[in-house]
Amino acid sequence: MTTDTPPEVAQADAEAREADDLLAALEERVRDGDDKDTPQQISEQRELGRFARLRAEAARRKAERTAADAEDKRRRKLTADALALVEQQGDRAPVADGYERARAALVDMLTMADAHDQVVSEAARMLRQTECGPMHRYESVEHENGSVTSEPCRVSASRTAPTVDPTADALAFGDGSRIRVRAERLLAVLVADVAAAHPVTVEARHPAFLAAPLNEQAHRHRDTVSAFLVAAKGGEAK
């Protein structure tokens, strides 16, 4: 019997033990030669003990049924609450709509980045053909410890006297340098910025979001995401 035993069960068990103790006492007195106790008394006490045990078992079964009914009621309430929560607040459609808008916006951004980079590459090619000056020159710099290093120094540029990098697609017309931004750089920094602003929860068995290659994560989760998007649009999720 534990501290969680219902009072009625504990009382019935106590009565059964008391009846057994009385029977044991009667039988022991007979063994000691007491002739005041009769067979009928022992038989009656034995029946009383048996009846007390039956009552204890009945109390225990009743308590178990009551506990089972309470647990079933608790499970049914939790199930109903979970269903209400999902139906009232678990709308998948906004997530799917946001996904489609984000994908379209990213495609537009990367397309524009590619167009920009093609312009910079072509302009740099044209400037190199004019043999215009380089964007940087290197000057000797003496440090406090006496060492001397060659440090890059930006060459001034203007609209009529631009500069160009001799090995990379970068140039300057006096209004700041123009470089190839490259779509993959934009995408990598954007993903990192978004993840920093809205931390991504990662399961313990998987590497951190930004530490794993995107193609690896996409391969791992594509089926789940695809099924989610299909269901969000009213289709049948697989």
Results as ranks from 00 to 15, higher is better:
170 A>M: 13
205 R>M: 07
142 E>I: 11
86 V>A: 13
224 T>S: 12
114 D>Y: 09
9 V>M: 07
56 A>Q: 00
213 P>S: 01
83 L>T: 12
115 A>K: 13
166 P>C: 08
201 T>A: 12
116 H>E: 08
15 E>M: 07
224 T>C: 05
172 A>W: 02
136 H>C: 06
135 M>W: 03
145 N>E: 04
193 D>L: 12
58 A>P: 00
179 I>G: 00
45 Q>A: 13
199 P>W: 08
128 R>K: 10
238 K>W: 03
58 A>T: 13
39 P>C: 07
219 H>S: 12
195 A>T: 07
180 R>M: 10
149 T>I: 11
144 E>T: 11
196 A>D: 06
135 M>V: 12
87 E>V: 12
11 Q>I: 10
57 E>S: 10
105 A>Y: 04
177 S>T: 15
149 T>G: 05
237 A>E: 09
154 R>Y: 06
67 A>F: 02
145 N>R: 08
28 E>D: 14
144 E>I: 05
89 Q>V: 09
78 L>I: 09
49 G>Y: 01
129 Q>M: 11
174 G>L: 03
183 A>H: 02
4 D>I: 07
6 P>F: 04
41 Q>E: 15
101 R>D: 13
221 H>V: 01
94 P>E: 12
69 D>R: 11
79 T>S: 11
131 E>F: 11
16 A>I: 01
68 A>W: 01
14 A>H: 08
100 E>N: 07
137 R>A: 05
235 G>Q: 02
163 T>K: 06
130 T>M: 08
41 Q>G: 05
62 K>T: 13
47 E>M: 08
112 M>Y: 09
197 A>C: 10
32 D>Y: 02
68 A>N: 07
28 E>S: 10
26 L>H: 04
174 G>N: 05
74 R>L: 08
191 V>A: 11
111 T>I: 06
35 D>L: 10
167 T>Y: 03
60 R>F: 07
208 A>R: 11
126 M>L: 12
184 E>S: 15
59 A>S: 07
86 V>S: 10
122 E>K: 04
225 V>K: 05
158 S>P: 06
70 A>I: 01
26 L>F: 14
53 R>Q: 05
139 E>H: 00
108 D>K: 15
121 S>A: 14
81 D>G: 01
60 R>W: 05
51 F>V: 11
189 V>R: 11
49 G>C: 02
175 D>K: 09
195 A>I: 06
169 D>V: 03
229 L>K: 07
174 G>H: 04
22 L>W: 08
122 E>C: 00
86 V>H: 05
230 V>G: 02
173 F>D: 00
57 E>F: 03
103 R>C: 07
201 T>E: 13
165 D>S: 15
156 S>H: 09
199 P>T: 07
85 L>V: 04
114 D>R: 15
205 R>E: 14
108 D>H: 14
214 L>Q: 10
214 L>I: 08
20 D>Q: 10
156 S>V: 05
66 T>H: 06
45 Q>E: 15
75 R>A: 15
125 R>M: 11
179 I>H: 04
108 D>S: 14
106 L>V: 15
96 A>D: 06
225 V>G: 01
28 E>A: 15
114 D>F: 06
1 M>L: 13
207 P>D: 14
208 A>E: 09
119 V>P: 02
15 E>L: 14
7 P>T: 11
137 R>D: 10
232 A>S: 10
82 A>T: 06
204 A>C: 04
165 D>L: 09
23 L>C: 03
66 T>V: 14
9 V>W: 01
